[in-house]
Computed example of a mutant assay.
Amino acid sequence: MKYLLMICGDESAAEHANDGCGGWSEEMEQRGVVRGGAGLAPPTDATTVRVRDDNLLLTDGPFAETKEMIGGFVLIECADLDEAIEIAAKHPAAGYGTIEIRPVIDGPPPEAH
């Protein structure tokens, strides 16, 4: 299964951004679970896109005003949610922020009802 780990934190998390991952990346590469990932520019650099009644609406900044922001992401592939939790818990950001784990839908999305 593939999972997206969204690395979240508040403004103080930026202090940790240059600390690296303390060997986490190397361990996960050796385990062969990492499929991609990257850090993100701050929300102040975001552009939000909406289309309503065929009108393109652009907004500078993030979609939602919140203290927590997504600072990066990692795409992993592992056996199940238990392993994804174990991998996320080892990430240094879990100690100062939050890591949200979401399953990646492979193939066509489920039909809406």
Rank of each mutant, 00 (worst) to 15 (best):
Y96P: 01
P42M: 13
D82E: 14
G95N: 15
A94L: 00
E11I: 04
I87W: 02
G107T: 09
R35S: 06
L5E: 07
E15N: 11
A88R: 01
T47Q: 12
T59M: 13
A94C: 04
E86I: 00
D54P: 02
A93W: 10
E65R: 13
R31E: 14
G97I: 08
E29Q: 08
I99V: 03
V74M: 08
E83R: 11
E86S: 15
A14N: 08
E29P: 00
E86L: 06
R52C: 11
A93I: 05
V49E: 09
L81I: 11
L4K: 02
A112G: 04
A94G: 01
G97S: 06
T48R: 14
L5S: 05
Y3G: 03
L81C: 07
G39D: 10
G32Q: 07
V104H: 02
A88L: 03
N18L: 07
V51K: 12
R35Q: 14
M1D: 08
P103A: 05
E26A: 14
M6G: 03
G39A: 15
I7M: 06
C21S: 14
P92F: 04
A46F: 10
R102W: 04
P110H: 02
E29H: 14
E83D: 10
N18W: 00
K2R: 14
E100D: 10
P43R: 12
Y3N: 04
W24Q: 07
R31G: 07
V49S: 11
L81E: 14
M28T: 03
P109W: 13
P109G: 05
K67W: 05
T48Q: 12
P62F: 06
T59V: 14
D10K: 10
M1F: 05
L57T: 12
V33P: 06
E26P: 03
P110Y: 09
G107C: 02
G36P: 12
L81S: 01
V51P: 13
A64T: 15
H91M: 06
A94P: 00
G22Q: 13
K2I: 00
M6V: 07
I7W: 03
G20V: 08
I105W: 13
L56S: 10
E11T: 04
A112L: 13
I99W: 00
R35H: 09
E100Q: 13
H91G: 05
D80I: 07
R102K: 15
P62S: 09
G23I: 01
G22V: 00
E11R: 09
E86C: 06
R31L: 15
D19I: 00
G72W: 04
D19W: 02
P109R: 01
A64N: 07
G9F: 03
A17C: 02
P103C: 05
A14G: 03
S12H: 02
G23V: 01
P109A: 08
D82I: 06
E111Q: 14
D82C: 03
G20Y: 02
M6T: 09
P108D: 10
H91C: 07
T44M: 11
Y3V: 01
A41D: 13
H91V: 02
I76Q: 04
G20T: 01
I87L: 09
E65H: 11
D54A: 15
A17R: 00
L56R: 15
H16T: 05
Q30I: 03
H113C: 01
V74N: 08
I7D: 00
T44W: 01
A89G: 06
P109S: 02
E29T: 11
P42T: 15
G32P: 10
I101N: 09
G61A: 13
M28S: 03
A38Y: 10
V33A: 06
L5W: 04
K2S: 05
L75E: 07
